[in-house]
């Protein structure tokens, strides 16, 4: 009955504005989906080739054209890549470094970002300018001073130089991201917290951080990706093969004969999996919050 009425109304007056909006939304949704599929296809192609290549039998001449399904499939490449490339030990080392550096980065960057919102405007401006200047200094320009510093402290050939940047938030960029996020929170909330006698530490922990959870997950994901894929620092500071992290081990594996490239590709898959897992976990938080009811979604 209701359907019939609706059809009658529809015939009599043409599509209602809401129905038209729904139609437009549906078309927009389809276009978005098609666009998303297109992007996925483009970006998935190298990953598909990476995975399929990792199952190709090693010791053969490289195929002139890519093989989507190698014959025979050789899953044993993964075991050999772990063994030859020292990837097991390297993965443990990278996990230790990331496990320490990522929470530390988030902690320091968020505290610094929060402090910037609470400081007098003149101080904040000066610190933000300093952060931009720090961002513009090439990492290679600091190689020697940092090397001398860690050598003097007796910390070269340890994992400490790889974690140490987290004591400064890893990058001024993360501090600025938190600063921008905290500035979006109405200042009245912080004032109210202060009036209720909360300390700055408690305000940061109880008021500020819960409101920027999506940003926290995003910074954590970025810090993890940076730390996990950091090649230059371990190359300079670490000598002992047992302390190599994943990028160094993978680099070593990349020098195998061209006929053994399936082993290198298997190593690359192993090195990529943790990043994909962390990103999948983090994006559930920051994207859902963005779409949903958090303050960022309003």
């Amino acid at each position: 009955m209701n359907t019939a009425v609706a059809q009658t109304r529809g015939r009599g007056r043409g599509p209602s504005p809401r129905a038209a909006a729904r139609g437009g939304t549906a078309r927009g949704g389809t276009a978005r989906s098609l666009g998303a599929i297109l992007v996925v296809v483009v970006f998935a192609a190298p990953i598909v080739l990476l995975v399929s290549g990792s199952f190709r039998q090693p010791g053969l001449a490289p195929p002139p054209t890519p093989e989507l399904v190698p014959d025979p499939l050789t899953p044993g490449n993964y075991g050999r890549a772990l063994e030859i490339g020292g990837l097991t030990r390297a993965t443990v080392n990278s996990a230790i470094v990331s496990g320490l550096a990522v929470p530390l980065s988030v902690l320091v960057a968020s505290l610094a970002g929060f402090a910037l919102t609470q400081a007098p405007a003149r101080v904040t401006r000066a610190l933000i300018a300093a952060s931009f200047v720090a961002l513009m200094v090439p990492a290679t320009a600091l190689l020697v001073p940092r090397f001398v510093l860690f050598r003097t402290l007796g910390l070269t050939d340890t994992l400490v130089p790889l974690v140490a940047p987290a004591l400064l938030g890893t990058s001024p960029f993360y501090v600025l991201v938190f600063y921008v996020a905290f500035r979006q929170i109405p200042g009245e909330l912080f004032d109210a917290s202060r009036l209720e006698g909360a300390s700055p530490w408690r305000t940061w922990r109880r008021v500020a951080m819960p409101l920027v959870r999506p940003v926290t997950f995003a910074v954590a994901a970025l810090a993890f990706i940076f730390t996990w894929s950091n090649f230059l620092d371990p190359l300079i500071y670490v000598y002992n093969r047992d302390l190599f992290t994943v990028p160094l081990a993978l680099r070593s594996l990349s020098t195998v004969d061209i006929s053994d490239y399936p082993l290198f590709l298997a190593g690359a898959v192993i090195a990529s999996v943790p990043v994909l897992v962390v990103f999948a976990f983090a994006q559930r938080n920051f994207l859902q919050r963005y779409r949903g009811s958090g303050w960022l979604g309003r």
Binding site: L143, V144, F147, V148, R151, T156, L232, L235, I236, Y239, N240, R241, L248, R251, S252, S254, T255
Partner: peptide, 23 residues
């Protein structure tokens, strides 16, 4: 103590930095 670099570029990066850094 064997210090392993993967290729010549890596070796020169390690060597240059450590020479400049005095170690």
């Amino acid at each position: 103590q064997l210090v392993e670099a993967s290729d010549r570029a890596d070796l020169i990066a390690r060597l240059s930095t450590s020479i400049a850094g005095g170690s």
